[in-house]
């Protein structure tokens, strides 16, 4: 199934990246003072804000004795896409994304530590240029770390697509909006790269079994790369917020 021409004859993509390159990621922790944790993340032109409240007392109807209840809300700003959206949240797509976010983040959070509590995670997409879900997961992970919530490992998400170059399959990392719109397959992976486990796997369109492994391994490589970037951002944030008086000598 030769897809649309996503790679030039030089092997470069439509936005000039090589097939295994991520878009530039810029991130910042602690952007708000009101929530317990917050983060801002830019992945290329995709811009996402995440805020975390909690853990706090769970609502009576949701309360569970065996672990914390994770509550996610994914919303897309009306001005985020080329065509103005009417409903920022509550439509089918946002609800599905909220569920996916919850699945990916519950895998990372050590839920068993806080029975009868609840964690609220709000993700707001300010500009959607492909991979908004992935950017949302990455931003939410940073916000959870900022809130001091115990995690098993970083949860990172990355997408991958498939293109052909000279008759050879060539997976593409971190799919942008143009490539998404071109109609190729998009595989979204949310993983805990540190442990090698996959929290969420989603694919649009059909892909031949033979090529699945290469696309998946490229997406996993992307997750590992993103983890390194996030880790660096967290360390920079710690160094910035660290004050000498903090040291408690026992």
């Amino acid at each position: 199934m030769p897809g649309p021409d996503l790679l030039s004859s030089q092997g470069l993509r439509l936005d000039g990246r090589r097939p295994n390159e991520l878009r530039r990621i810029k991130c910042k922790l602690g952007v708000f003072t009101q929530p317990d944790g917050s983060a801002y993340l830019e992945q290329g032109n995709t811009k996402v804000l995440a805020a975390v409240y909690g853990p706090h007392q769970a609502a009576k109807s949701k309360s569970s004795t065996d672990g914390v209840v994770v509550n996610c809300q994914y919303s897309t700003a009306t001005f985020s896409t080329g065509e103005r959206k009417n409903r920022p949240r509550g439509d089918r797509k946002s609800q599905e994304m909220s569920m996916h976010l919850r699945q990916a983040l519950t895998a990372a959070i050590k839920t068993e530590l806080y029975p009868r509590s609840q964690i609220d995670i709000y993700v707001e997409v300010l500009q959607a240029d492909g991979g908004a879900y992935c950017a949302g997961v990455n931003a939410a992970t940073l916000a959870l770390i900022d809130a001091g919530i115990p995690l098993r490992a970083y949860a990172c998400a990355c997408s991958a697509s498939m293109a052909w170059r000279a008759g050879q399959p060539e997976p593409l990392l971190d799919v942008g909006h143009v490539e998404e719109a071109a109609g190729g397959v998009v595989l979204t992976v949310a993983a805990l790269p540190n442990t090698g486990s996959i929290a969420l796997l989603e694919m649009s369109h059909r892909l031949h079994m033979d090529y699945f492994d290469v696309v998946l391994s490229r997406a996993m490589q992307g997750c590992r790369d993103i983890e390194i970037i996030l880790d660096r951002a967290v360390r920079d944030h710690l160094a910035e917020g660290w004050t000498k008086q903090d040291i408690v000598t026992i």
């Binding site: 115990p150 995690l151 098993r152 970083y154 805990l192 442990t195 880790d231 710690l238 160094a239 004050t243």
Partner: peptide
């Protein structure tokens, strides 16, 4: 303070 302690991150 210039000298920073060793930081640990999740995982």
């Amino acid at each position: 303070s210039n000298e920073l302690p060793r930081f640990y991150t999740p995982g």
